[in-house]
């Protein structure tokens, strides 16, 4: 299980990386943390001619308060995000989800940008980004553009990025006050990709739902934002009937696939169960949530 031969270049700046990409286009792959790409290379499921290693691009590793939220450089290690006090305070959903990304040894190396750009519909970070309407910054030959998570994801392991573009940053909005968040997932074993994962955010006003956000992993070809279920919650008292109604709606709109770990039917059922549990948890936390400031 050894990779096929490739050329290797370690770039120091985003500019250099863009120049390399412009030159090699389709034949090159960007190497971020490598925790998904390296297994694929070792198994020879991918055989790029050239690897462009971003790990020495220091300018892409940062976590900072920015524009009413938290901006995280693409090459920031997942472990740094997990341990960040700023993230814990301002983006509790992301902090909640981080320990579920692989194991700590994977997060020591894995990057936030790599995970977002790998676009695995079973992964935590794309769903968190979708749930919170995170914005990703993308640089390419034509300049910089900003995408929402919804605009970023195309299908299974595929983003809307051009082969010459690099995802350089993700920005999460600071959690508003009176908001509760929950990340719940169900995996066969701890550290595995979840069969289904649910990100939920509930904002309460006068004990009715002012805003609801729901995103799921494992139930489609990309992270699924359950907007219909969200709409059904807004304006309602978050009692069990309302939450169950939303969970039922989530089940109806998901289109999971069967594989050796679970049938589509089971995943759909699980999506309903976890949604209900995540909503309950988010509501309970919203009721206790202190106001948040960046």
């Amino acid at each position: 299980m050894k990779p096929a031969a490739f050329e290797y270049v370690a770039v120091r700046t985003t500019e250099e990386a863009l120049a390399e990409l412009a030159r090699d286009g389709q034949d090159a792959r960007l190497l971020a943390g490598g925790q998904s790409l390296m297994p694929i290379l070792n198994m020879r499921l991918a055989t790029p001619r050239r690897l462009i290693d971003l790990n020495r691009v220091g300018e892409l590793a940062y976590i900072r308060a920015h524009d009413g939220g938290v901006a995280i450089g693409a090459m920031t290690r997942q472990r740094a995000v997990e341990k960040s006090a700023l993230v814990a305070r301002c983006v509790p959903l992301l902090a909640d989800a981080m320990p579920w990304v692989g194991h700590f040894q994977i997060r020591n190396r894995g990057t936030i940008g790599g995970s977002l750009a790998h676009a695995d519909p079973a992964a935590e970070l794309p769903a968190v980004a979708a749930c919170l309407d995170a914005r990703v910054t993308v640089r390419g030959p034509a300049g910089t553009r900003t995408l929402t998570a919804d605009q970023l994801y195309w299908t299974y392991l595929t983003t809307t990025l051009a082969p010459t573009e690099i995802l350089t940053e993700v920005w999460f909005p600071t959690a508003p006050s009176r908001t509760g968040h929950a990340w719940l997932e169900f995996a066969r074993r701890h550290g595995d990709y979840a069969l289904v994962g649910v990100a939920a955010a509930i904002m309460l006003e006068e004990d009715s739902v002012a805003e609801a956000r729901l995103a799921l992993t494992g139930v489609g070809a990309r992270p699924v934002r359950a907007r219909d279920a969200e709409r059904r919650l807004v304006g309602r008292r978050p009692d069990d009937a309302a939450l169950a109604d939303a969970a039922e709606r989530v089940k109806q709109v998901t289109e999971p696939q069967s594989d050796i770990h679970a049938t589509a039917e089971y995943r759909r059922h699980l999506a309903g169960v976890l949604t209900l549990r995540a909503l309950r948890l988010a509501v309970a936390r919203a009721r206790q949530a202190p106001p948040v400031t960046t």
Binding site: R189, H190, D192, I260, H261
Partner: peptide, 16 residues
């Protein structure tokens, strides 16, 4: 065979 990796053949960890 569909279980050709340790992501598919699930040996228990400390957690299981």
């Amino acid at each position: 065979p569909l279980t050709t990796t340790f992501m598919d053949f699930l040996m228990p960890t400390t957690m299981e």
